[in-house]
């Protein structure tokens, strides 16, 4: 079998991920986390927190929860079922910061945790910030803020 033929054969026979099952799990876990966030947001507002502050508190709360579950070793087990359901909400961002931090503890707090904490989440920060700046430049030019 030549290489091209082999590559095609490998691709053809490789088992696919159970897409339907994964999507159902992603929907309920992901939706559940967002609904939990919404519920928390109402709770904070009921306690008299202004709207925008409540939104920030929700983010911080979910990140705290994800960090705790990651530390307890539960998050990866949930994520194996939930897939994108835990990855896409801010919980996934938190896990991608917390898990390298935990993992590199033995390499020291500065050169281990400090240097490696963004190894997984770095791209999100970089490209999010970059996209924001590009939008900012276009926006500033369009509305004449450079004048």
């Amino acid at each position: 079998m030549d290489q091209k033929h082999y590559e095609r054969r490998v691709a053809a026979r490789a088992a696919r991920s159970p897409v339907f099952k994964n999507c159902i799990a992603a929907f309920f876990f992901g939706g559940g986390i967002c609904a939990l966030g919404q519920g928390l947001s109402f709770l904070y507002r009921a306690l008299g927190v202004p709207h925008r502050t409540a939104a920030a508190l929700v983010t911080a709360s979910l990140i705290f929860l994800a960090a705790l579950l990651t530390g307890l070793g539960v998050f990866d087990k949930l994520a194996r079922i939930a897939g994108a359901g835990t990855l896409v909400p801010v919980t996934g961002f938190a896990n991608s910061v917390v898990s390298p931090a935990l993992d590199t503890k033995n390499e020291g707090l500065v050169l281990g945790v400090g240097a490696k904490i963004f190894t997984v989440a770095g791209p999100v920060l970089l490209f999010g910030t970059l996209a924001g700046c590009i939008y900012g430049v276009i926006y500033a030019v369009f509305y004449g803020f450079f004048l």
Partner: peptide, 21 residues
């Protein structure tokens, strides 16, 4: 983005102190 980033960094660091993989 400061709340999300700072929360993740701080809680991540604390988790690294209190837990291990």
């Amino acid at each position: 983005a400061s709340v999300g980033t700072t929360a993740a960094l701080v809680f991540g660091y604390l988790a690294a102190i209190f837990f291990k993989s």
